[in-house]
């Protein structure tokens, strides 16, 4: 069972508020190593500088959206194994389908609770301690 504190997370969302809220939720779950990026491009720079175990990314963002980020991550071997959880505004069938094609690990529909987010992450990494 992996420890949340040993998993590094990159939170990608163009909203400062949303990043702060997700960070707060992740801290409640037990994550310690949490980084943030405001869009896909910054996220990519961040990952290239230092890989993360998990990316939690919004979909609709300026510059590079979540899907493009996922695609870029999966196409670069050194970070291709990064777990990727996509946040979506609604249960958008087409979006999730495309994300699946690009190799998304899980998705999470807003709004979500701290517990809900935890479950989504646990579905990827197994139960967290």
């Amino acid at each position: 069972m992996p420890q949340a504190s040993s998993i590094s997370v990159l939170v990608v969302d163009d909203q400062l508020t949303m990043r702060a809220l997700i960070r707060n939720a992740l801290q409640q779950i037990g994550f310690k190593d949490i980084r943030e990026a405001p869009d896909g491009e910054e996220a990519l720079k961040n990952l290239l500088a230092k890989p993360a175990n998990l990316v939690i990314s919004d979909f609709n963002m300026p510059k590079m959206d979540g899907l493009a980020l996922l695609r870029a991550v999966r196409s670069h071997p050194p970070i291709r194994q990064t777990a990727f959880v996509m946040l979506t505004g609604r249960a958008d069938r087409e979006l999730v389908q495309r994300a699946v094609q690009f190799g998304v690990n899980n998705y999470c529909v807003k709004p979500f609770t701290v517990q809900g987010l935890k479950e989504k992450i646990e579905q990827v990494f197994g139960q967290l301690t």
Partner: peptide, 30 residues
């Protein structure tokens, strides 16, 4: 008190209309 993060219609994850299986990965594999 904030209970949810982000807000939208109260849609269920099941609304997708297709079967989604989360893809697992372990830290060891990474």
């Amino acid at each position: 008190a904030p209970i949810v993060i982000g807000a939208d219609d109260a849609l269920d994850d099941d609304d997708l209309g297709f079967d989604f299986q989360p893809m697992t990965i372990t830290l060891d594999a990474q």
